[in-house]
């Protein structure tokens, strides 16, 4: 068996804690601060790496569901047609089988996000009140699911004042509560 990622991250942390940090002189506060940040990043990396694909896949699913919803909401309206068609086209261009890498999935998420951005801008420039209102509500609903996932993904950073409200990593990754459900045709 080859050394796995968890083992190597743990070894990195141990070397930092037991050898490198004690060797940093008292007047080297910048080096000490950097070392402490390295330890913090390593701890979070250890929590994340094995779930990274599942996490990115969930982010993609949420963005794709939002794209489907907005396309459906735009149907029947005379405004936003071009940008809605563009978004619908972006959905049809998605591969049948998703890439198997975090980077590959993330790239597809970003492509859909670009098309959604264009539709949002177009709606505010010339969209109907009804469409804007429905789009507004659905982006907030999407954000609720997705930002909870993102906050949970980084809950160990100690920067979230409402960390007590967050699920644990497994629940966030596997519960339907954090999956944005698109509005069907």
């Amino acid at each position: 068996m080859l050394p796995d990622i968890t083992t190597r991250i743990n070894n990195l942390s141990k070397a930092l804690e037991s050898v490198i940090i004690p060797a940093i002189g008292e007047d080297e506060s910048f080096a000490a601060e950097q070392a402490a940040l390295m330890l913090g990043h390593l701890k979070i990396l250890n929590e994340q790496w094995d779930n990274a694909y599942l996490y990115e896949k969930g982010s993609f699913d949420n963005m794709a569901a939002l794209a489907h919803t907005l396309v459906n909401l735009a149907k029947g309206g005379s405004h936003n047609l071009t940008k809605a068609q563009h978004l619908a086209h972006a959905l049809t261009e998605l591969p049948c089988d998703l890439p198997l890498t975090v980077t590959g999935v993330s790239k597809l998420t970003a492509q859909l996000g670009q098309a959604i951005d264009e539709l949002v801008r177009s709606a505010y420039a010339a969209g109907s009140t009804e469409f804007k209102s429905a789009m507004f509500k659905e982006i907030l609903n999407y954000n609720h699911c997705q930002s909870t996932r993102e906050r949970t993904w980084f809950k160990s950073n100690n920067l979230d004042p409402d960390v007590r409200d967050l699920p644990d990593m497994d629940e966030m990754l596997n519960s339907f509560l954090y999956i944005y459900k698109n509005i069907e045709d």
């Binding site: 601060e33 950097q34 940040l37 390295m38 913090g40 990043h41 979070i44 804007k132 209102s133 507004f136 509500k137 907030l140 954000n143 609720h144 997705q146 930002s147 909870t148 993102e150 906050r151 993904w153 980084f154 950073n157 920067l159 979230d160 004042p161 409402d162």
Partner: peptide, 28 residues
Amino acid sequence: LLITWLGSAGAVFLDQIEKLLREDTSNA
């Protein structure tokens, strides 16, 4: 290392925006 650490708090602000905008839905 510090700025990527701080960057990881981005969703905290997205959550705040969402809550604030929900209060204002009638004017949205």
